[in-house]
Simulated scan of single mutants.
Amino acid sequence: MRVTGLLLLVAHLSTVGWLTLRPRTVPWVSATNLQPLATIRAELAHGPSWEAVQHLGASVLLLAPLGVLLPLSAGRLNVSPLVSLTRTVFAGSMIALAIELLQSGVPGRVPDIDSVLLGSLGVALAHLAVVPAARRRLRRRYGHLRDVTPRFPRVELAPQADALVGGRTYR
């Protein structure tokens, strides 16, 4: 599962990179937005429209698969749901932030802090919708394998030997 998750993760990130970091030839670009929720308010200022839903929905859906692919590539079944959600959303937020920072050097692309917020929301929603139920199902299916793992007795430190004396003396 880890290998499949990693391959899908690399494929998705490659696609996202291609979509978001290609230079665009446009006659003008909007200004950089560093004020949280400004773009969202501007999109919804004239009431909800199909264009606003498309723009905001695309930002949410672009990184949403990371909410499933990041835990899948980790391959952990027995982890706290809160820790898993926190770890996944943090990693998704950092990826979204990296994309926005890289966009600042691409012609025709403008960084927008709301894209980071919407991308993180998409990661969180996808994670909450899929991962807890999938882990529960996999734990039920492979729960009998939990006790098959061999257990090794705890290895303690070896007694200290006096290295300067030719004999073996232990304290």
Rank of each mutant, 00 (worst) to 15 (best):
M1Y: 15
V3N: 11
T4F: 12
G5Q: 04
G5W: 08
G5E: 09
L6Y: 12
L9N: 01
L9R: 00
V10N: 03
A11V: 07
H12P: 00
L13N: 00
T15C: 13
G17Y: 00
G17E: 00
L19G: 06
T20F: 13
L21T: 14
P23M: 02
R24L: 15
V26L: 15
V26A: 15
W28E: 11
T32H: 06
T32C: 07
N33P: 08
P36Q: 06
P36A: 08
P36D: 04
A38Y: 12
A42Y: 05
A45N: 03
P48E: 03
S49R: 08
W50P: 03
E51H: 13
A52D: 00
A52N: 01
V53W: 12
Q54M: 03
H55D: 03
H55F: 08
G57D: 05
V60F: 05
L61Y: 04
L62D: 00
A64C: 12
A64M: 02
G67C: 06
L69S: 00
L70E: 00
P71Y: 07
L72R: 02
A74R: 02
V79T: 15
P81T: 15
S84P: 00
S84R: 09
L85K: 07
T88L: 03
M94V: 13
M94C: 14
I95V: 14
A96Y: 04
Q103M: 10
S104M: 09
G105H: 07
G108Y: 12
P111C: 15
I113S: 01
D114G: 07
D114H: 11
V116Q: 02
